[in-house]
Design a protein around this nucleic acid. Structure first.
Lengths: 107, 107
DNA sequence: TCGTTATATGAAAATTTTATCATATATAAA
DNA sequence: TTTATATATGATAAAATTTTCATATAACGA
């Protein structure tokens, strides 16, 4: 069993989930709006939203038949801090060769 | 291609790599000492160390035929902050059901 | 130089995660 | 009370990651 800190990072380590958070950092949105903005398939988005929700990284409230998602305030601060930090290491991260597809530098 | 922030989280989202960081947060260690402490197979550990090294999450220096690894200072602070935060959400993270194996609560 | 210790590398097997598909539920409007 | 819209769920297919295996390199001491 993974430890809870690894699980926490897992939630962010996924491009779609991180993209969701990037949008929700700007403003709260319903699933349909997120789908349009991010171009993710509906059921896939729904799975990722429920993951973020389970982990209390985002919150949800009802509005008619829509569900409005918003980011957890504390998380928002942590993510901001990390995003600033990552800028320094961006080039290294993209060339790691262990994580994800390696960036070969081509355009 | 993943964005660099996802890659950064990937580096931490792995149990072995996170365990390595947990040890290095206490004190610098060579590969052999890490292997003994964590019980990870040698080549596997070596792969994970090179990942963390590529991402500049840890540093290395030579001492004879040993290589001494230490954690990057800024990273150490970020990790501390997150570990504190995660404690609050621990129970939710372990029951997420999307991340890793689900914790069914049994003993 | 030769053997031994310490660590790294590359490829493949094993396992996990992510993405998709079919279908379900819940709410509102007609 | 039927239909349409919005979103969720569970199972499997597809893809990516982690682990292992075989082997390589590098430094030290005899």
């Amino acid at each position: 069993m993974k430890n809870s800190t690894s699980l926490f990072f897992d939630a962010f380590a996924n491009k779609n989930r991180f993209d969701i958070l990037t949008e929700l950092r700007k403003k709260e949105l319903c699933a349909g709006e997120l789908q349009k903005t991010l171009g993710i398939e509906q059921t896939h988005l729904s799975h990722d939203l429920s993951c973020l929700l389970n982990c209390k990284i985002i919150n949800v409230r009802r509005d008619g038949r829509k569900r409005i998602y918003s980011i957890n305030h504390e998380i928002k601060e942590i993510v901001s801090m990390i995003m600033t930090h990552v800028k320094t290491y961006e080039a290294y991260l993209k060339k790691c060769g262990v994580l994800g597809e390696e960036d070969n530098g081509r355009i």
